[in-house]
């Protein structure tokens, strides 16, 4: 007790005074309704005055939402600007690049933005903001940064309609990526889950080893370049009585909110098609 009193005498009186006063004020605002309300009110005003404190910290955590709101507002306002209303200029450099004299460009890409989309019907179509004016033609493939989107079906001057891979008639030639996995099949959609497609027609003597196997395009069509990643093997089985695998493929692209796409221009498409037509005539 005596040592406590001696220690107490050593403490700076002013510090102790303000300490005790602070504790008392804390008790007042915590335990007395009227004073507490006044305190809360004034505290808000004080932080408002300094323009920092809790309000500022709180708004920092809201920045993300605020940003999104602002982004939305910007895009709304931007739509009203004359210069942003439908740019009819083709982006030339993606269409005319030639690497060197021994190589001829086969695939060129036209960048496009998805302006309409659906995933909930059995036959889904997308609308892109590129058309005949930009060199888009029927039967061009459309890919995204991480998957395939579909094939151009209808073209107008400034827009094109793409038959989505999420279309019951859609077939994409696809294979499992890997040196010893060169077997290929058709990627189809049964019209249910827009996250999954089915890889069929792979004979069951081929071994699907890993769940993480990557499914990619084969390049056996004029639609898509070879080696475009589509998705991953999610689950595979051999249906009873079937001689083929049924492989569920999880698509990399979120088809429901895809925004940007590249239209694949196969420069040799006409040549290949004419050649194949001649071969077909002979049969």
């Amino acid at each position: 007790m005596n040592t406590f009193l001696q220690l107490l005498n050593r403490v700076n009186s002013r510090v102790l005074f303000f300490g005790l006063l602070f504790v008392s004020l804390f008790l007042i605002v915590r335990n007395n309704e009227a004073q507490g309300k006044i305190f809360l009110n004034s505290a808000g005003r004080v932080t408002g005055f300094f323009g920092s404190g809790a309000t500022a910290i709180g708004s920092y955590f809201n920045l993300r939402r605020e940003n999104e709101k602002l982004q939305h507002e910007i895009s709304v306002l931007r739509g009203q600007l004359a210069k942003d209303q439908y740019n009819t200029q083709v982006n030339i450099d993606t269409l005319q690049r030639v690497l060197d004299s021994t190589r001829i460009q086969i695939y060129k890409y036209i960048e496009a933005t998805v302006v309409n989309n659906s995933v909930d019907k059995p036959k889904n179509y997308l609308t892109l903001n590129r058309g005949r004016h930009h060199g888009v033609k029927e039967n061009m493939g459309v890919i995204t940064a991480d998957g395939v989107l579909g094939v151009v079906r209808y073209v107008s001057k400034y827009y094109c309609i793409v038959m989505s891979v999420l279309h019951t008639d859609s077939r994409v030639s696809a294979q499992i990526r890997g040196v010893d996995k060169g077997f290929y099949g058709s990627l189809v959609w049964r019209g249910k889950d827009p996250r999954f497609m089915q890889l069929i027609d792979i004979p069951k003597h081929n071994k699907i080893s890993s769940k993480e196997d990557v499914v990619e395009t084969t390049g056996f069509s004029t639609y898509y370049p070879p080696g475009v990643t589509i998705g991953k093997v999610f689950y595979h089985s051999i249906p009873p009585g079937s001689s083929n695998h049924l492989i569920q493929v999880k698509l990399n692209t979120n088809m429901a909110n895809v925004r940007y796409a590249q239209i694949v221009v196969n420069v040799h498409a006409d040549e290949i098609n004419q050649l194949e037509a001649r071969a077909k005539d002979e049969q």
Binding site: L20, L21, S24, L25, F26, L27, I28, N32, Q35
Partner: peptide, 15 residues
Amino acid sequence: NTLGVHTASAVVLAF
């Protein structure tokens, strides 16, 4: 039943 009010005043008076 005014926790803190007299306490603060008493501390001020003591100081």
